[in-house]
Design a protein around this nucleic acid. Structure first.
Lengths: 230, 230
DNA sequence: TTGTTAGATACTGGATACCGTATCCTGAGT
DNA sequence: ACTCAGGATACGGTATCCAGTATCTAACAA
């Protein structure tokens, strides 16, 4: 809970300050540094982070709609109680949304986008062979982002963004056998998209994401049972 | 697009101004009064609605995370293109979330909450018999809200709130045979919850919501095919 | 001692004014 | 017709201020 002011000059022009604060606060709650039920006071965090109240306000609002924070009628805001089930549901929901996106992408995807997807796919294969996990992870996210973008739905994109917040970006670097499984799934997804077969694409995508999240969930269950009450 | 300032004194103390504005703006976009792709300028809407920029800012942010509005890197905000598939997906997603909530409610629900649910259920039955559709609709929402609350997950609640925005509150008053179907489903859900059978509750809940949305979706498809390009 | 009430305190939502910056638009010059 | 410079525009953020309300505290009454 010590001071950790935000360095504006470093990232500035790219990201909005309120978004940085959203990430910081979300992390604080999700990692338990801010305890469940703890009250969040805008002005305190503003001072602590060395910013004005407004971007904190925006961040708090955002996290309330994400369900990371909870606002009661009085207006006071508290850290939500997040349990393993929430994480599990979050992953599953992400799979459902990604599957919807794949279905829609199949009917709308252009040749250019297919080509881009194939390129990412082969690059990912090379990175995996070379054992470059970081690059593989990056390309994996690029693959999925491209499919989601091809779905061409602002609403789906927004919901995916929300559910994705519970998934660590480095998640796939943890699992050993993941790259090979992913490559096989991606290939099938690519086929389904090329054939414009929405149902097939949706089916594979959902299984793909659920399978990918499984190792992380067991890992999480492990940690939680080690440490039942924080 | 004419002026329609907000009357504060009417609802005031209960709802935040920014939430009222969120509803208004969402409605404007969803009904097409604000055309897809049309630019949203905070200060214009602030003046039009007779409020300051700030609550408009909050509303715009909220709608961006809902995917009703889209913000591009430049910072400019535009009305999203919402198509029938988005609505369909929204309903389905709502069913998935409600099903998750039911599963969790089954394991956690208290005797008090079960009693409350039963009370709502019987009241709904009476209202339906009496042909009071408005009251029946209200009680239906109460029923589902109670189940969702029993799930006791801030995160699920938040996501449900988001998906619910695409569902008109009066939706169920439109469908003739709905009350009887709903009563039967609700009874089975109640049984599953009483027996603390999560999987059963989840299964029925999902089918229940999907079935309930079907008539509205055909209605929507109808309207859309009548009027293919707004 | 316990319960109630009145006052002090603190925090949020909102209004207002202002600044720096990035984008866009427009028009002049080539 | 094209490019580029400069102005207009709008957004994010800061700083203050205010009103309403919720919570806390402490005195007072039962």
């Amino acid at each position: 809970m010590e001071a950790q002011s935000v360095d504006r000059r470093s990232v500035q022009r790219s990201t909005k300050l309120s978004e940085q604060l959203t990430s910081i606060l979300r992390e604080e709650v999700l990692t338990g540094r801010v305890r469940p039920g703890e009250r969040i006071v805008q002005s305190e965090w503003a001072e602590r982070l060395g910013v004005s109240r407004m971007p904190v306000r925006d961040a708090v609002n955002q996290l309330c709609t994400e369900g990371i924070l909870v606002q009661q009628q009085s207006g006071q805001v508290f850290a939500a109680q997040i349990d393993p089930d929430d994480i599990r549901d979050g992953y599953y929901l992400n799979a459902v949304l990604a599957s919807m996106a794949a279905r829609r992408a199949a009917t709308r995807i252009s040749e250019d986008e297919l080509a881009e997807l194939k390129q990412i796919h082969t690059k990912l294969g090379k990175a995996a062979k070379a054992g470059d996990r970081h690059e593989a992870s990056r390309l994996n996210w690029a693959f999925h982002r491209t499919v989601n973008r091809a779905a061409n739905s602002a609403r789906l994109t927004a919901l995916l963004r929300m559910t994705a917040t519970s998934i660590p970006h480095s998640a796939f670097e943890m699992v050993d056998e993941w790259p090979d499984l992913a490559q096989a799934d991606h290939a099938r997804i690519l086929d389904a998209l090329s054939a414009h077969d929405g149902e097939e694409a949706a089916r594979i995508m959902q299984r793909h994401i659920e399978a990918g999240s499984e190792p992380m969930l067991t890992e999480l269950r492990q940690r939680w049972s080690d440490n039942p009450e924080t």
